[in-house]
């Protein structure tokens, strides 16, 4: 709770301070945030933390293939999570896989939030035919399940990190657009927007400096949840062989690679990347849940 005390010295009643205080009121959310920071750090520092670069074939020892967790390597290190069929240390593979999974998830959510927010704001502000058209497209897209839309796009584009990011953006933007439009429609009725109009401010300025900041809370909640969804969807698509290429394996592709060995009892090749994926998704969801409770004024008791 260091942040709380530092803030309280400066000013005890800023909105940020209230927000931080209420966020950390939940122990589950605090622990989740702590875990997420650890995971992100582990992913960022993977080249220094990992025992080997799992995709440098020269560092792999085929004699160490399919070792169970805890076995020693020929060179003296310990494979805490075992090795795969090519002698690759699973812990290293997971650390490198986390980089891809988190990168794709956060990157696509960021880009989708920008596209979706811009479209949603413009739709709410313009109203009329533009609004109706945008919302028709949003409804149409949301009526199709995400997996189907992503499948279609990747069938056409083929594998690749940027292709899957693009597919995730196309799948996700509609969620932001709908959320932002709803929030902006409410805000647009308020006096401060009217006042800004009367002052003769240009519409771009009103959108960006007045409407957008007031629509941020729901955007932040959707953003958090969509990161988890994007990571899960990317893992699913990679598992199906439509996602990331074999040279840049995410957690989903690691799980897929181990799939064929499950039946022969070498469970760890799939199991541990799966556990990593599970922790990432659950932790982000728990943080998102708490953010929704804190940022939603109706939930105040």
């Amino acid at each position: 709770m260091n942040t709380t005390s530092i803030l309280s010295i400066r000013n005890t009643d800023t909105p940020l301070h209230r927000f931080v205080e209420r966020f950390f009121a939940s122990r589950v959310a605090s622990v989740s945030l702590f875990l997420l920071i650890l995971i992100v750090l582990a992913a960022l520092l993977a080249p220094w933390l990992a025992m080997q670069n799992p995709y440098d074939l020269q560092q792999l020892d085929i004699l160490d293939s399919s070792l169970p967790p805890g076995d020693l390597s020929a060179s003296g290190g310990t494979y805490w999570l075992g090795t795969d069929d090519q002698g690759r240390d699973m812990l290293s593979a997971i650390l490198y896989g986390l980089r891809i999974s988190l990168g794709v998830g956060v990157g696509s959510a960021l880009l989708a939030s920008m596209v979706g927010t811009a479209i949603g704001l413009i739709a709410a502000y313009a109203g009329g035919k533009i609004d109706a058209f945008v919302m028709r497209v949003v409804d149409l897209q949301l009526s199709f399940p995400t997996i189907l839309v992503a499948l279609m796009i990747l069938t056409v584009l083929g594998k690749g990190i940027w292709n899957i990011v693009l597919a995730l953006i196309i799948v996700e933007w509609a969620f932001y657009a709908r959320t932002v439009r709803g929030a902006a429609l409410v805000e647009r009725q308020k006096e401060y927007v009217e006042a800004a109009h009367c002052l003769g401010l240009p519409w771009r300025h009103i959108l960006a400096s007045h409407l957008l900041p007031n629509c941020l809370p729901p955007i932040i909640v959707v953003f958090t949840m969509q990161i988890a969804r994007a990571i899960a969807l990317e893992a699913t698509l990679s598992f199906l062989g439509l996602g990331v290429p074999i040279t840049e394996p995410s957690l989903g592709l690691l799980i897929a690679n181990g799939y064929q060995y499950i039946l022969s009892g070498n469970y760890w090749i799939s199991f541990y990347p799966g556990i990593a994926l599970l922790i990432v998704i659950v932790v982000i969801n728990l943080i998102g849940d708490q953010l929704r409770d804190v940022l939603n004024p109706r939930m105040e008791k």
Partner: peptide
């Protein structure tokens, strides 16, 4: 968990 876990992962756990 039913909402947020990727279903392929749960399927693999079932098989295991």
């Amino acid at each position: 968990l039913g909402f947020s876990l990727p279903s392929f992962w749960v399927g693999l756990m079932f098989i295991m």
